[in-house]
């Protein structure tokens, strides 16, 4: 019996040792491979001091793929991500985009912001009718009737926090470093909006409940307007 216990102790000691020196057991999954991303991009949008980390789960694959290429190639600027993406192939970026796109996570409930009736009217008019005098189509012609996006690369506008929407539209509007250095159909539109309109739209979008699905495809006219983004979204370079 005494020997048995000794042997048992010995075996246990060996096992413990082995566990310490055996290579870490790493799951062969994409979830494991993108741990460097999920440290910032959790299941929800996150505020962390001054920083703001948008959620990326459930967004359209083509949209995510375009953004990843933009960050890597310097068309959208955020240094921490540029460093991570610098040496990734288009194929891998596509795979990562697909991984996040099919993650089905519940959306946050709408923000509670007080919205003045004038703001709501202003926003609703631009979103559903646009302004033909300034050549601004209704946002819904591209972002979908339900504003949940249009495959493959026009993102949904619901479920995004107000601060994020303001930052993106503001960035395009001012031609800032973050997103405004490159011309595309969205940048052209945001440049035309006034700050008042941007604020109203951001508030209005942020209080809408999320429902519906992305729609099928852009009209011929709109896809011509966004031709350079569509091209990018095609085959790997």
């Amino acid at each position: 019996m005494k020997y048995f216990i000794l042997i048992l102790l010995f075996v246990l000691a060996c096992l413990a040792n082995a566990a310490e020196t055996l290579p870490v057991d790493v799951p062969d999954t994409l979830a494991e491979r993108v741990k460097a991303c999920t440290i910032c991009h959790g299941a929800e949008d996150r505020h962390d001091g001054d920083s703001y980390y948008p959620r990326i789960a459930g967004k359209l694959e083509g949209y995510l793929f375009n953004q990843l290429r933009h960050f890597r190639d310097g068309r959208r600027y955020y240094q921490p991500m540029a460093i991570l993406l610098e040496n990734m192939s288009d194929e891998y970026l596509r795979e990562i985009a697909r991984y996040f796109a099919v993650l089905n996570l519940p959306y946050p409930s709408p923000e509670s912001i007080t919205l003045q009736p004038v703001e709501a009217n202003l926003a609703r008019r631009l979103v559903y009718s646009g302004d033909s005098r300034r050549n601004i189509p209704a946002c819904s012609t591209c972002h979908g009737k339900e504003l949940m996006g249009t495959a493959p690369f026009v993102p949904g506008l619901l479920g995004l926090p107000r601060a994020y929407i303001t930052a993106q539209l503001g960035g395009w509007h001012s031609g800032g470093l973050i997103r405004g250095k490159v011309a595309n159909c969205m940048a052209d539109i945001a440049k035309q909006l006034t700050y008042e309109e941007i604020n109203a739209i951001a508030k209005w979008l942020a209080v809408q409940p999320v429902s519906g699905e992305p729609v099928g495809e852009l009209s011929v006219e709109m896809s011509q307007r966004c031709a350079n983004l569509a091209l990018e979204n095609g085959e790997a370079r």
Partner: peptide
Amino acid sequence: LNGGYPPTTRANSRPYGMPP
């Protein structure tokens, strides 16, 4: 500070990464 991924190459096309 910055984390990083080894490069994607033919022999290692889906590298794992280090968070910043």
